[in-house]
Design a protein around this nucleic acid. Structure first.
Lengths: 241, 241
DNA sequence: CGGATAATTGATAAGACTCAATACGCGTGG
DNA sequence: CCACGCGTATTGAGTCTTATCAATTATCCG
């Protein structure tokens, strides 16, 4: 309801009757928020691979901004299941959409460098600055849209379509174009737990994309987006032909 | 990050190390928001079953509050697929979390009565009243949590577990207790599109619950929650035994 | 009552999971 | 520098869940 201009990459989205096409572009709301925070005083912190940054249910003391590395937001169940809500990349905010308690556990996917700011300092900024509020809502709404896209992916798409959507979303967020190399910092297990699939299915779907010439896999942590357009049509569900 | 006290029914959630158990209770953030809006001037509008209230991509002109009936928030794809993000019940707000454009199409599940308020009027209220802002964030965050629970459901749960979670969530939102009748205003197809399953699987899973004595099905649009505790353990994934 | 829509149940098949075996990559220590 | 070992990735074989297709029954509404 508040006036926002959030754009977000909707990998599956198509020109619709009323909705304008949202171009595949990196979300800028984080940047703007981050920019406003850079003036604030805070500190730096580094996390080794697989270390926990904060846990679900813990009180929110700090707001983080990712300087380098990849973070996964996840939930663990007592059955040992894990569900990864999202991956956060450099520039993204961490703990920002949480309330008094963290909604997720945040873990370092690889070596992660963070800038942090005391929570109450940010809260004061929010209360006093309408501009900050607007950008906060922008950020919040972009995240909401992203989750919606993911809900659609989980509800309606096949394994191959899910993987294609995931790759496209990652490519969009990192501004990786056709023919370029995409960095897959997260492991196969991470991707599986994000897409609601098994590790083996991720491997096999990747192999299918490779065999179809849609992507190349120079090594485990990199993808070459040879046929970006084909990838889009797969994500769209046109894998029939 | 803003101080909020949002509680939300997490059907699958368990006592965790750090997170307090969130009781299964109706979300109150809508009520509070609705209460603040009731002073505002607006109008009333009624929609027949299956009629469209607003469409994805359309500009947001009004904020609605549901007086009676059930609304589904959905997306349609060109393949003819449909995905239902959520069902909204009396007291819930409609169009509130959207930005300039509606993120979803809203359709009447049954006979729906709405109160509406002009958007710019609400926007002014938001700008001027810190209390409204707080409640807005409360509402927003409750919705976010609900979507997260749903993401978990879609990513990790089996058909029977999904259905159990869905029933529990509905029961929580309508304050329906053990042994009581739960109103299922939406059709099987609606439930299927919400849970990422086929209509037939919904029927079969319901039949399983009925045969196990967990619920009774007096008629298509009502459920008796005979064994609420069993339902919870099913949703939790303890269906093994 | 009759037609249409929705719900249920059955039979079959496809897709994804599980289990198992192997290959790869990377860090460690000899 | 190379061999070893551990974790991760990949591939294969078989099974199971759920989707699909088809047929029947129930429900709604004029």
């Amino acid at each position: 309801m508040i006036a926002l201009n959030a754009r977000y990459s909707k990998a599956w989205a198509e020109p619709e009757r009323h909705a304008p096409v949202r171009p595949l572009s990196p979300d800028t709301s984080s940047d703007r928020l981050g920019g406003m925070l850079q003036d604030q005083r805070g500190g730096r912190q580094a996390f080794e691979k697989n270390n926990t940054i904060f846990s679900e249910g813990h009180p929110v003391d700090r707001i983080y901004r990712i300087i380098g590395g990849t973070v996964r937001l996840c939930r663990h169940t007592q059955n040992g299941n894990r569900y990864i809500a999202d991956f956060l990349l450099p520039g993204d905010m961490l703990g920002f959409i949480d309330q008094n308690e963290h909604l997720f556990t945040a873990e370092a996917v690889d070596q992660v460098n963070l800038a942090y700011y005391p929570r109450n300092q940010i809260a004061r900024l929010f209360d006093s600055d309408a501009n900050v509020r607007t950008n906060f809502l922008l950020h919040f709404s972009a995240r909401m849209m992203a989750f919606q896209d993911h809900l659609f992916t989980l509800a309606c798409q096949s394994a191959k379509e899910r993987l294609a959507s995931f790759i496209l979303r990652l490519a969009g967020r990192t501004a990786t174009g056709a023919g370029q190399r995409l960095n897959l910092s997260m492991g196969r297990r991470d991707i599986a737990d994000h897409l609601g699939l098994s590790v083996e299915t991720i491997c096999r779907s990747l192999a299918q994309l490779r065999d179809a010439g849609v992507v190349e896999i120079p090594n485990v942590h990199q993808l070459v987006l040879t046929e970006l357009e084909t990838l889009r049509s797969i994500a769209r569900g046109a894998a029939a032909e």
